Simulated scan of single mutants.
Amino acid sequence: MTFTPTQLAALLDEADHHPWESVQAALARVAGQPHPRIGWLTTHLAATKREYGTLIAAATATPAPPQDAGLSRLMAWEVDAARRLTAAQLEATLTHAGQSMTVAELLRLNARHSAWHAGQIAALAGRARIA
């Protein structure tokens, strides 16, 4: 399956920012004292997005993500960074979790990973914190 940089950026943008079903939409549903697992999920998402961005930057000779960025800034950064890649850069290979894959495959994994955790956050958003 082949995607253009624009299509991959749109996929990431939807997983991160879509008004109904995204990380941002799930976080917007959190009210009051959030469930402690939400904090772990957002920290985990920021760490993995930073890791993915760093791997892609090394494989494509492009700028790495800002190391001081939080989740919201990383989500905006990765969409813009994906949009700027060339078709040749999408085919560059890298190793993640012991597996060889292309940059395009890692970007698709990133979108799936974001959607997966957005669903978890949404499920926890309405739960009251139990102290």
Rank of each mutant, 00 (worst) to 15 (best):
D16I: 05
P36K: 10
A97R: 08
T93Y: 09
R50L: 15
L71K: 01
H113I: 01
E91H: 11
G70Y: 02
L11P: 04
L8E: 05
A104W: 03
A9Q: 10
A97D: 00
A64H: 07
R50Q: 14
E21M: 12
Q33R: 13
D80I: 09
H113T: 01
T95W: 00
A9V: 09
F3D: 14
L12N: 11
A76D: 11
T2P: 09
Q99F: 11
A76G: 07
L11G: 05
W40I: 06
E21W: 15
T48I: 13
A69T: 10
L109E: 08
L107T: 02
S100H: 07
F3G: 01
A111K: 01
H18M: 10
G32P: 06
H96I: 00
Q89C: 15
A104T: 07
P19V: 12
A82G: 06
R84Y: 07
L106W: 05
I121P: 02
F3R: 11
A97L: 00
A125V: 11
I130T: 09
Q7R: 12
T54F: 13
V79K: 06
L94N: 11
Q33A: 15
T4Y: 14
A88L: 10
M75I: 00
P65F: 06
A76N: 06
A26K: 03
H96L: 06
W40V: 10
S114Q: 07
A115P: 03
R112M: 12
Q99H: 11
A59G: 12
P36Q: 09
I130N: 05
H44R: 05
M75W: 01
W77Q: 02
L94S: 09
M101I: 02
P34Y: 03
E78H: 10
A10C: 12
G39L: 10
L106N: 05
A125L: 07
G119W: 12
H35T: 08
T4V: 13
T42F: 04
R37D: 03
A57S: 10
H35A: 13
I56M: 07
V79Y: 03
A59F: 08
A131E: 14
V103Q: 04
L41G: 02
T54I: 14
R112Y: 12
A76P: 04
A69I: 08
E21A: 14
Q67A: 12
H117G: 00
A64C: 09
L90K: 04
H18D: 15
H35L: 11
A97P: 00
A81M: 07
T60R: 03
